[in-house]
Amino acid sequence: MAAAKFKMSKRGVGQLLRSEMVEAEMLRRAEIIKGVAESIAPVGGAGDPHPGLYKSSFYVTSRKRGGRRRDRAVAVAGNSAPYARWVEFGTDRVRAHHVLLRAAAVGGR
């Protein structure tokens, strides 16, 4: 029985990584992460001047050329609220909520 041979094409792999199919899958996963993040996002209490702003500010974007080398399709789930960084990572007075980190751990599969 003859052994099967495989020769990888770097160009072909690059085309696959930038394909609409891969971009659609990355976008699907980012949308799931966004949904989980919205469901676990904290909402301010009575003293919050903008209750619900953080929860309503999640977004998803995608593009065919991303990553460190700009050689693959990527999708990003993020939050555009002005204080999103402090909700995610915390401050010396407020604990970190890690909303996107937790959402990616649950929904990024």
Rank of each mutant, 00 (worst) to 15 (best):
V60I: 06
P49N: 03
I32S: 02
R93G: 04
A105Q: 14
M26F: 00
S39P: 07
E88G: 10
H98Y: 14
G67L: 05
P49A: 01
S62Y: 00
A103E: 01
S80H: 11
V22D: 03
S19V: 08
W86F: 14
A75E: 02
A2R: 15
G45Q: 03
H98A: 09
A30V: 02
A75M: 01
V13C: 12
R109G: 10
V60F: 08
L16G: 09
V106N: 00
S56A: 15
K5F: 15
Q15A: 14
A37H: 07
E88V: 13
L17Q: 08
G78H: 02
A96H: 12
T61F: 00
E31D: 09
H97S: 08
S62K: 02
V43E: 06
V22L: 12
G78K: 02
P42T: 10
G67H: 06
D71L: 05
G47A: 12
A81N: 10
R72N: 04
T61L: 01
E31I: 07
A73F: 04
T61H: 03
E38A: 13
D92C: 09
G66D: 05
L17F: 10
V99H: 08
V36H: 06
R28Q: 04
L17S: 10
A3Q: 14
V106K: 07
L16V: 14
V76Q: 03
G52Y: 05
R28M: 00
P49V: 07
V94R: 12
K55M: 05
S19Q: 10
K5I: 15
G12F: 10
V106S: 05
A3C: 07
Y59H: 07
R95W: 04
A104W: 04
A24R: 15
S62N: 06
G108A: 08
R29I: 13
T61I: 01
L17I: 04
M26H: 03
A75L: 02
S80T: 11
Y59M: 06
R63E: 12
A103K: 06
K55D: 03
A104N: 05
A4Q: 12
K34A: 04
G78E: 00
G107L: 07
R68S: 13
H50G: 00
V43A: 07
A105L: 13
A96T: 09
M8R: 14
A81L: 10
A105E: 11
A96K: 14
R65C: 07
R102A: 05
A81S: 12
G47C: 08
R28G: 00
K34C: 02
A4P: 08
I32H: 04
A46R: 13
A103L: 04
E88M: 12
G14V: 11
T91M: 01
L101P: 00
R69K: 15
A4D: 11
A73H: 03
A4W: 13
A2C: 08
I33F: 01
V94T: 11
R72P: 01
R65W: 06
R85N: 15
R95P: 10
G44I: 01
P49S: 04
S9A: 14
S57A: 06
S62E: 03
G52K: 12
K10F: 13
R85C: 06
V74R: 06
T91N: 00
V94H: 12
A2D: 13
